[in-house]
Design a protein around this nucleic acid. Structure first.
Lengths: 310, 310
DNA sequence: ATGAAAGCGCTAACAC
DNA sequence: GTGTTAGCGCTTTCAT
C-alpha cells in the first residue's frame, strides 16, 4: 500500500512487514509517471544550457546536479547550441513534462519563451548573467562589469593599444556584454579598441584564439595588449606567442575570461576573471527548490586574477 | 481531441479547425506525464556519467544529446562521481520514470544494477569501454588496447625507463585498464614500469600531472618517458618541464590520453591517443533508439597521434 | 469520421 | 490504523 511505501500517513508494523515482503517478492518498482500525474507535483527539473561543452558549463552543471541529486530530483538537460529557437523548442517540450522548475543559462530568450514562462507556474531561475531583467530569479554576475574591470586593469597597467579577439560573438551574448563593458571603459578613458578579430569557424576556441591573434598581428596594427572573449582563446594565443617569440607581457599583454584551472598553470599564469561557476549552479538549484518563490537577483560577483600575462 | 493534436487516426479539416482554435484560446499545453502513463511508452532516456566535467564526457554528451534532441527525446542526466552506489541509486530513480532507454558510461556496475537492467525491458547501451561484458549493447573502444598501443609506441621510440602518473586510478576504472594494457605491453618486452605516482587530491588534473611528475622526478628514479592517465595530466606535466628547463622529449618524453583540442596546440603537440568521443555518443544514442534491440558491441577504435613529446 | 469510455499506476481524501 | 475510491490527463479501443 501506498502509505508504507512512501512512509506517510499511519500504518502498523504488521502491515508494513507484509507490504515489504510483497514488494520484494514481486520485484516492485515504483512508477513515478503515475505518481507525478496523481499528485500533480514532480521531482523533475529542466536545465537548458547553450552547450554542455562550453567551457563554463560543466562547472555550473556539476554544481546544480550536486544539489539536485542530493534532494532526489531528476534533471532533464537540453542544449540549445546558442539557438534561441532551439531553446524555445526545448522549453516547450520541457514544460510538457510539468517540471518543478527550470534552470536556464542566460537571460535572453524569445518573447514567446518569456511570456510562457511568466504565465506558467513553474519556478524559473536564470543563470550566469545579471545584466538585464530576469523572468523570476536570476543568479550570476555582471558580464558588462567583468568587461569593464578587465579594461580598467589593462589601462592601469598602462596598455593603450588594445585589441580584441572573440569567438562567435553574435551568438554568445554574454561575450558580447563583456566586450561592451570593455569598450565603454576604454571610451571613458578616451581611447578606442585598436583592432578586433572575430572568427567563427574554428574547431576549438584555442584555435580561434591562435588564429585570431595571428590575423590581428598580420593586419599591421601595433598592439600592446589583447583582450580575449575567453581563457581558451587567450591560451591558444599564448602558445602562438611562445612559438613566434613574442614576449608576454613585454611585447604583448594577454587577458582572458573564465579563470579555468589550466590558465593558472601555463608558464605565464593568465590574467583573467574568474566567476564562481560551481556556486552559481548550486545557488540556482537551491533557489529553484525553495518553498517561497521570490523574485530576486543574486549577484555572486567575480574575481580578477592578475597573472603574469599583463 | 487527441486525434488531431497528435495527427493520428482520421478526422475532418472542420474538426481540426475547431480543435486548433480551442487549443489556442485555452493556451493548451500537452501533458506528457499523462500521455506517457496512458500509452506506456515514453520519450525519455536516462544518461548516467561519472561527472559532467570529466574531460571526455562533454563530447560524448554533446554527441548523444544532438541525436536525442533531433528525435524529440528528452534526456535525464545524472552524475555518479565515480561512485557505484550513487550509480545504483540514480538508476533506481531513473527506472521509476520508465525511460525508453538508458545510456551508461562504462561497463562496470554493481551486481544489482546489472541484474535489474538485464531483467527490465528498457534498452541499455553502455558507452566508452569494450573491455568486458556488456548488459545489452556497448559502444566504445578498448582501453586496454589503447594502453598497449601507447606502450608499444614508446618502446618503438626506444624509451626504456618509463614512469606512470595517474589520477584517481581506483575510481577511474578505464584509466586502470589503460594502465593494465600499458604494463602488459611493457612486460611482453621484458621491462617493467620504472616508477609510478598516483595522486588523488588535487584541484585539477593539470595540477595532478604537474605534481605527480615532480614527485616522480624527486624520487630519484631516472626516467626517459612518462605515461599519463590523461592529456590534462600530461599537459600539467609539460608545463612543469617548460618551467624547470627539462627538454621534451630529449630529457623526457610525455604521452597522454584523450586527444583534446588543446593538446595539439601546445608548443610541443602532445603524443596521445584520441577516441571518437562525439561519435561514440551519437552511435550510442542511435542504437538506443533503434527498433530492433540487438545484443552487440560496436568498437569504434582509437587513433594514436604522434605529436612531438615522444 | 467521430463520440464515448475504459484504463495507465498511482495519490489523496474519505470512510470506517 | 486501515480499506476503499475518485480522479490526475491522456491514449486506445470500441461503437456508432
Amino acid at each position: 500500500m501506498s502509505r508504507v511505501l512512501r512512509n506517510r500517513g499511519s500504518f502498523s508494523t504488521q502491515v508494513q512487514q507484509s507490504v515489504m515482503a510483497a514488494t520484494q517478492a514481486l520485484n516492485y518498482m515504483p512508477n513515478r509517471i503515475a505518481g507525478t500525474l496523481a499528485s500533480m507535483t514532480s521531482d523533475l527539473v529542466g536545465i537548458i544550457v547553450p552547450s554542455v561543452g562550453n567551457a563554463a558549463m560543466p562547472d555550473v552543471l556539476a554544481g546544480a546536479l550536486g544539489i539536485l541529486e542530493e534532494r532526489g530530483v531528476q534533471s532533464i538537460i537540453g542544449a540549445t547550441n546558442f539557438d534561441p529557437l532551439q531553446e524555445e523548442r526545448l522549453i516547450d517540450e520541457l514544460l510538457s513534462w510539468r517540471p518543478r522548475g527550470i534552470l536556464l543559462a542566460g537571460i535572453e530568450h524569445t518573447e514567446r519563451v518569456k511570456n510562457i514562462l511568466k504565465n506558467s507556474r513553474t519556478r524559473v531561475v536564470e543563470l550566469m548573467d545579471t545584466d538585464g531583467a530576469g523572468i523570476q530569479a536570476v543568479v550570476g554576475f555582471s558580464h558588462r562589469q567583468a568587461g569593464r574591470k578587465s579594461a580598467e586593469h589593462l589601462l592601469e597597467k598602462n596598455y593603450r593599444r588594445i585589441g580584441y579577439v572573440g569567438h562567435s560573438i553574435s551568438t554568445d551574448l554574454r561575450a558580447g556584454k563583456r566586450l561592451d563593458g570593455f569598450r565603454s571603459a576604454l571610451t571613458d578613458n578616451g581611447i578606442a579598441l585598436a583592432a578586433e578579430e572575430v572568427g567563427t569557424r574554428y574547431n576549438s576556441s584555442f584555435e580561434a584564439g591562435r588564429n585570431g591573434l595571428a590575423n590581428l598581428l598580420n593586419n599591421g596594427t601595433k598592439l600592446d595588449a589583447v583582450y580575449f572573449s575567453s581563457d581558451n582563446l587567450a591560451i591558444g594565443a599564448y602558445f602562438y606567442c611562445l612559438e613566434k617569440g613574442i614576449s608576454v607581457p613585454g611585447d604583448l599583454a594577454l587577458f582572458g575570461f573564465n579563470g579555468l584551472a589550466i590558465s593558472g598553470l601555463i608558464p605565464h599564469p593568465l590574467s583573467t576573471i574568474r566567476s564562481p561557476r560551481n556556486l552559481i549552479g548550486q545557488t540556482g538549484a537551491r533557489l529553484l527548490l525553495e518553498e517561497t518563490p521570490q523574485v530576486q537577483v543574486v549577484d555572486l560577483g567575480f574575481e580578477l586574477i592578475e597573472g603574469s600575462t599583463s
